[in-house]
Every structure is written in structure tokens, then in C-alpha cells.
Nucleic acid binder design. Structure first.
Length: 202
DNA sequence: AACTTGGGCAACCGCCGTATT
DNA sequence: TAATACGGCGGTTGCCCAAGT
């Protein structure tokens, strides 16, 4: 396996590689990504194959700009879930976590006045300094900060769960306001159904 | 026309959790 | 139980291209 890893090609995929990967997945299905380089001769890591398939080649991936409804949903779900891009994407049909993340970082964070860390870092002379120029490391994901965050909104999720029946009855969209004021959630009629299914599948 | 700057996005990296051996 | 493999996630990087100078 190391041999394949070592000679792995990087960078953009070409049409031929896409075709090889698509044929493989259609024949064998997803999973066992690390077998792909061995079976197909593709000079890509299994990880890279998975990413390419998930983010680009999957037939139901929607291309192009986000609609207003999608944008609205991203904003609301982000306020609810934070940077849980995969969870957010799972509630927006046809959108991948990478798309949602990019959309947030390039469009919405700007629109909503969230400081772009990339630019912030540049402004700090290209060095991540302590204080204002600091950024959360990936380790913090499983650390105390996340724990506190999770605990803080889990009560709200419970509250939402208790409102199950009301959600299903309202054909004209929903608006929720939670007692501890952590967030408000509104859904349009179009998304009410899909949100319900996704949420209770958690 | 040449160069610089900044936005958009695909892809990579490093880490973590889970499954398997 | 420990080691290893694998899949998945979020953060970050770097390329491409259009707009501005």
C-alpha cells in the first residue's frame, strides 16, 4: 500500500481519472477506497478517490450557485450546529460538506461580517500569533470547547425534539424560539419536511 | 499589454473514531 | 487488549481566473 501512497499523484483530476473512478464505483460501489489504486491502477490515494467521488462525481451532487432557500438554510443550520459542515450538508439535498464550507467561507461569512481567518492571518504578517490572530486547532474539536458547545445546544435540540408533532402539522413553515435564547430557527415550507427527516435520523 | 490583487473553489492535510485483525 | 486499517471530518492550502491598476 505504501508504494501506492508514495507514487500518488496530487492536484486536479483529469477526465480520464474521473472516468476510471466512476467506472470502478459503478461496478463495485463505494467503500474500500484504498483498493481503488490497486484495482484500477489510478495513481491516487484511496482518500483522494473518496473525496473526488463524494464532492464531484456523485450523480446527485448539485452544481452551481446556492439558491436563496439553500443560503437561508445554511445560515440557520450554521447558527444551530456551528462548523459541522457534514451535518449541515446532510440537510441540504445535493450539496456536499465541501460546497457548504466553501460557500460559507467565501460568501456568507463575508455577508454576515465574520472575519476571514485567511485574510486575518495575512494581515498579521503571515504568522499565526496568539490573541487576535489565533485560530482554533483541530484538536479543539474533541476538546473542552466542543464539549461545552455541545452541552450548550443539546438542550435546544431536546426542545426541538419535543416539538415534533407541531413541526409535522404546519404546512406553511415553522418558526421556533427557544427558552434559553441560544438560537431561533425558522423553516420554509419547502424545507420543513426534509429537515424533520434529517433531524430525527440523528 | 503586463502586472498585481483578490475571490472562488477543488483538493490536500492532519486528526479522530470505529471496525477489524 | 493492542495494533492497524479505514472512513470521515474540519481546517487550510494553492491554483485558476477575472478585475483592477
Amino acid at each position: 500500500m505504501e508504494a501506492y501512497e508514495n507514487e500518488s499523484k496530487k492536484g486536479f483530476w483529469n477526465a480520464e481519472e474521473d472516468s476510471v473512478l466512476t467506472k470502478y464505483v459503478k461496478k463495485h460501489g463505494t467503500g474500500k477506497w484504498n483498493r481503488i489504486p490497486k484495482v484500477t491502477g489510478l495513481k491516487r490515494s484511496g482518500k483522494s478517490c473518496r473525496l473526488r467521488w463524494m464532492n464531484y462525481l456523485t450523480p446527485d451532487v448539485k452544481r452551481g450557485d446556492f439558491s436563496e432557500e439553500e443560503e437561508d438554510l445554511v445560515v440557520r443550520l450554521h447558527s444551530l450546529l456551528g462548523n459541522r459542515w457534514s451535518l449541515i450538508a446532510g440537510r441540504i439535498p445535493g450539496r456536499t460538506d465541501n460546497q457548504v464550507k466553501n460557500f460559507w467561507n467565501t460568501h456568507l461569512s463575508k455577508k454576515l461580517g465574520v472575519v476571514d481567518k485567511k485574510k486575518k492571518r495575512k494581515a498579521c504578517g503571515g504568522v499565526e500569533a496568539e490573541g487576535d490572530c489565533n485560530s482554533a486547532s483541530s484538536k479543539e474539536r474533541s476538546g473542552e470547547g466542543e464539549k461545552l458547545l455541545h452541552e450548550s445546544w443539546s438542550d435546544d435540540l431536546m426542545e426541538l425534539g419535543n416539538m415534533h408533532e407541531e413541526i409535522m402539522r404546519d404546512d406553511f413553515g415553522c418558526s421556533f424560539s427557544f427558552p434559553n435564547s441560544l438560537f431561533d430557527l425558522c423553516t420554509s415550507p419547502y424545507y420543513t419536511q426534509s429537515f424533520h427527516h434529517s433531524f430525527f435520523a440523528l
